[in-house]
């Protein structure tokens, strides 16, 4: 067994600099589209091309509702007028009307992860938070299997019909104060499953959602950011996004 200890130490530190510094490694985030100034025709093409109605026109500018983005890349790949694509990961959206946590929750929270019909990707990204690269424990985030110990309900998936009673039960079983964090496009808006008669239009149809983390799936860093925001220590988004450059992705 000692070989494992030695081997573990020899592997060195892999943990990301985030949130103290920025994570710049390639492939850590799929990025999200952004709005901008397009010509009228290009804007119309963009709006039509998107299968989940991310883009809309307001005051002559294209606005991107990133909550709906499912990373189909149809606005940037194999088309002429590409949408702006930002390779960031601090995407958390705070919904209004949700109570703030007490300061007692600033340092550490216990998180209950509920799969409400997820495709497996969001859940897998949440699982990555435990691997040495992200190591959420260092930030005081712990996964708990029981709602009795949970402060945050991290919900993934669109909220399927069969899971709805379970979601309500889980939420009711949690002691207050509590927050629901919806992770991924499906949990935010139903994503590609929204039209299905057994899927809700996101978790907010079932539970009061406090925070939304867009992305399909949001990368581990985005989820980490969401959790930091939930505990009231989220770093300012604008500073970090500037540090990040483009990716080697899609030409």
């Amino acid at each position: 067994m000692s070989q494992w200890v030695f081997n573990g130490i020899r592997a060195g530190i892999k943990t990301t600099a985030y949130p103290k510094g920025a994570e710049t490694a390639a492939g850590t985030t799929p990025g999200l589209p952004a709005g901008g100034d397009f010509g009228a025709a290009a804007a119309r093409a963009l709006i039509e091309r998107c299968p989940t109605q991310v883009f809309s026109l307001a005051d002559g500018k294209v606005k991107a509702n990133v909550r709906r983005c499912i990373h189909c890349y149809r606005c940037v790949r194999a088309v002429e007028n590409k949408a702006n694509w930002e390779q960031t990961y601090e995407w958390t959206i705070t919904r209004e009307g949700q109570n703030e946590f007490l300061s007692a929750f600033k340092k550490s929270i216990h998180i209950l992860v509920v799969d409400a019909g997820d495709c497996g990707a969001c859940l897998n990204e949440v699982r990555q938070l435990n691997n040495p690269y992200y190591n959420m424990h260092r930030l005081g985030f712990f996964i708990t299997p029981t709602p009795r110990h949970a402060d945050v309900l991290l919900a993934v998936g669109p909220g399927t019909d069969h899971m709805r009673p379970a979601l309500k039960k889980i939420y009711d079983a949690m002691p207050g104060p509590k927050k629901v964090v919806a992770v991924g496009a499906c949990a935010l808006s139903g994503g590609v499953f929204a039209e299905s008669f057994v899927c809700a239009n996101g978790i907010s149809d079932v539970l009061p959602v406090a925070l939304e983390i867009p992305g399909n799936p949001p990368p581990p860093l985005a989820i980490l950011h969401g959790l930091l925001v939930a505990t009231g220590r989220g770093p300012a988004a604008s500073v970090l996004s500037m540090l990040l450059s483009g990716s080697e992705a899609a030409k």
């Binding site: 592997a11 892999k14 490694a25 390639a26 492939g27 850590t28 985030t29 799929p30 990025g31 499912i70 990373h71 189909c72 890349y73 990707a121 897998n124 990204e125 990555q128 435990n130 691997n131 040495p132 690269y133 992200y134 399909n216 799936p217 990368p219 990716s247 080697e248 992705a249 899609a250």
Partner: peptide, 21 residues
């Protein structure tokens, strides 16, 4: 876990999306 994340990053680096969407 490191290998899995390595492969996810390799996929993301190559195609832009960690799950090849």
């Amino acid at each position: 876990g490191i290998f899995e994340e390595e492969m996810l990053r390799a996929s993301g680096g190559l195609t832009g999306h960690r799950y090849l969407f």
